[in-house]
Amino acid sequence: VLLHAVEAGISTVRVYPSGRSVAIFGDSGARRSLLLSFPIRFREALVGSFADLAGLSTGRECVVESTFQLETETGIRAFRISVLRGLSGVETVVTVIPDLRSVIALDSIGFHPEQTEITRRLLSMQDGLILVSSPAAEGVATTIYAMLRESYRAGSRVVTVEETHRFRNDGYIQLERHEVEKRFGGKWTRLAETLEPDALMIESVSDKKELLDLVHIARRGIPVFCGAQGVNLSRTLETLFSLEVDPFLLVRVVRLVMHQRLVDLLCPECRRAVPAVPSLQLVGENYREKLETMVQEVTFYVRAGCPRCRGTGYSGKMALFDLLPFTPGVQHQIFSDEPLEEKLARIVGENLRSAFPSVEDLLRRGMVTFDDVFPFFR
């Protein structure tokens, strides 16, 4: 069943009671289909068979989750299984973990050309720390994996730590955070000393102490890619420079700090053009003239809803980025005598590679609503 799901493009397989039967349904995102159906007496055997693939117990009080792999004719495929107790007994959900080999590249994640060039140049150094902040964890792993694929080829010893596996990448040592807690006591330094990675990826750091540990790992020559939750780039920089570490060491180790925000992309089949134009009242002074020009040249759209987008009006999401590369000029500015808040404001104002070119491009192509990208105009 699972191998058929992979070949058929099914992303999720569910096993649960349906009337007097136990049904196995497949969900591909666009549609849901019945794969198999058995008399209800076979439910425990079916759930147990799926759990056995992952080496899980299905006892009465058991609610568990794990990842496992199966070998196919085209290679190894990874799955995530959740065994849970529903109202009518034990149920199973198996998710196919996407393979990254053909879906994620640096050119496809939302950088505009200047940002792509800057990031490639910094990645080619293969050292230091790259920090990706975001209001939520969604999308951070995708961004970091794209950078890893750009700079580390087959044979490199890349160690990744995610909260939960969402992607599979051949050749990487992929761990979940709970495994790091169990095997290394949650210590990034112990993990690095034991596994000796050529590069280390941490999807999310939980506090300043973890971030400080990663700075010291990067200082030892191991490239570190990590994510952190933050409301904007300035707040992320404040957190970074409040660490108890010599600022000289920090600026020598950090290569790039970026902040990403996800925007919804309109469904091209049902988006609807509107005659109204955005109000300029709340637009920031830096963007007012650009928006006035766009109002004269651009058709604005809103979402509608159709069968293709399942009534949502959207076709997916895209990340937009503000980048601050730690160039020699930025490093020099860090050592000025200004108060930290004023210093960081000047550094951001003079060196930021903002997401605005990407925002303007999306609006001109009718791919987003103005309301969804309005925060970039403030």
Rank of each mutant, 00 (worst) to 15 (best):
C306F: 02
G186K: 08
I222Q: 04
P135A: 07
L131C: 13
E360Y: 06
D246W: 06
S33V: 15
Y301G: 00
L56H: 07
G171E: 06
T369L: 10
S57D: 11
L46F: 05
A5H: 03
L46D: 12
E150P: 03
Q331K: 14
E150C: 07
R271E: 09
E244I: 13
R177F: 13
K290Y: 07
G313T: 10
E238C: 08
A218G: 07
F335P: 02
E350M: 04
A228L: 11
T143R: 01
L265I: 15
V224Y: 03
L106P: 02
T92R: 05
I217H: 03
R153W: 04
G316C: 00
N286I: 14
F376S: 01
S88G: 13
L363Q: 09
H332C: 13
I40Q: 03
D213E: 14
R60E: 12
P98C: 09
Y314L: 14
L323R: 01
E61I: 08
L212Y: 01
V47E: 06
H165S: 14
T299H: 02
F68A: 09
L87V: 14
R308L: 15
N169E: 13
V93S: 14
V96E: 06
S49F: 08
L123I: 13
V254L: 08
R60Q: 02
V132T: 15
P357A: 03
V180F: 01
P357M: 04
T95L: 13
G59A: 07
L249W: 05
Y152N: 09
T143V: 14
E91S: 11
V90C: 12
S242P: 01
S57N: 11
D107H: 09
L249I: 15
E193N: 08
D337L: 07
E285S: 14
V298K: 05
E114D: 13
F248V: 15
R271L: 09
V274Q: 00
C226N: 00
D213I: 02
A154Q: 12
L363E: 02
T74H: 12
V231Y: 04
N286Y: 05
R80M: 06
R220F: 01
D107G: 10
